[in-house]
């Protein structure tokens, strides 16, 4: 008798745990007219829970040494390499060819390695010691913006996803990700990779669901510091920009990006989610440089 196959329950990823959505609802994205699975339709409450988890993890993540963050990103790549076959079958199930899927997985792993290498280098390349005219030591460096919302690429469900998560967390931010709505499988499986890669719980949180329902909650949440939007819908872009004003979220729009292009790999993607901090201190004697303290 033929063995009965065990079907996978796709869940969301919040604070290092895999809850089902608070909404209790699901949807069935189709590929070749067949449902890919029962995927969680995350709710506003899930977004809020994920932001709480991301905020809780942010200070600890930012305070890790750059060397440590670098090793953890490298570790994600290692684990991903070890699970390539699972991603291969999911990518194919979502409708691309075997060869294309292989290429996407290769590029995804390499992209993680690329940003792993930047963790302990971008402050050296882009930080500055500023030659002020008064007798002060003055330097500028980069600090993470905080909690970043990622509306991940709709089409490039693995490479597009990783291309944004990697630079965001490389700089010490934590994130809440909304996965591709029509191709969510890789995102859910990627969260299983994250959970086994020494990435502290809460640093990356991944939700699946309906963009129309959830975008406004990413855009208007007062404890989200930045949102990057990787799709092409003009109305959604306008809505995001408008709602983001209330707490002056930093908004990055990545429309019409070719994620296969190696040019999308660059350190400026890290800096997009950083704040410049400039520190002054007198040289020689406290409150040096004349009478004006």
């Amino acid at each position: 008798m033929k063995r009965i196959e065990i079907l996978k329950t796709y869940k969301i990823y919040i604070g290092g745990a895999f809850p089902r959505t608070e909404s209790g609802r699901y949807y069935q994205p189709l590929a070749n007219k067949k449902p890919l699975g029962n995927i969680c339709l995350s709710s506003r409450k899930d977004v809020r829970n994920a932001v709480v988890a991301a905020r809780g993890a942010q200070t600890g993540w930012a305070e890790k040494s750059a060397y440590n963050r670098s090793q953890i990103l490298y570790r994600i790549a290692e684990i991903l390499e070890g699970r390539r076959s699972q991603f291969q079958s999911e990518l194919e199930l979502q409708g691309i060819t075997k060869v294309t899927a292989e290429k996407e997985i290769d590029a995804s792993i390499d992209r993680l390695i690329y940003y792993a290498g930047w963790c302990d280098k971008y402050t050296q390349v882009f930080g500055s010691i500023n030659p002020v005219a008064s007798s002060h030591f003055n330097f500028s460096t980069y600090e993470p913006t905080g909690v970043v919302g990622i509306i991940a690429s709709e089409e490039s469900s693995l490479l597009g996803l990783i291309s944004m998560i990697a630079p965001v967390i490389a700089g010490g931010n934590t994130c809440v990700v909304l996965a591709s709505e029509s191709k969510p499988l890789c995102a859910v499986t990627f969260s299983e990779v994250l959970a086994t890669s020494d990435v502290p719980g809460g640093v990356v949180n991944i939700l699946t669901g309906n963009t129309k329902e959830l975008l406004e909650h990413f855009a208007s949440h007062m404890d989200v510091n930045a949102v990057v939007y990787c799709r092409n819908n003009k109305d959604e872009i306008n809505q995001l920009r408008l709602l983001a004003v209330d707490n002056l979220k930093r908004i990055t729009i990545k429309d019409n990006v070719n994620w296969d292009d190696e040019k999308v790999e660059n350190p400026y993607e890290i800096l997009n989610f950083m704040e410049v901090k400039t520190t002054w201190h007198p040289i020689e004697s406290i409150s040096a440089a004349g009478s004006g303290y």
Binding site: P131, V132, N138, S140, T278, T279, W280, H281, I286, Y293
Partner: peptide, 14 residues
Amino acid sequence: VVWGNTYNKFDPTS
């Protein structure tokens, strides 16, 4: 902008 042991300092390079 953070001032250690000074305050309200400005410079074009900063």
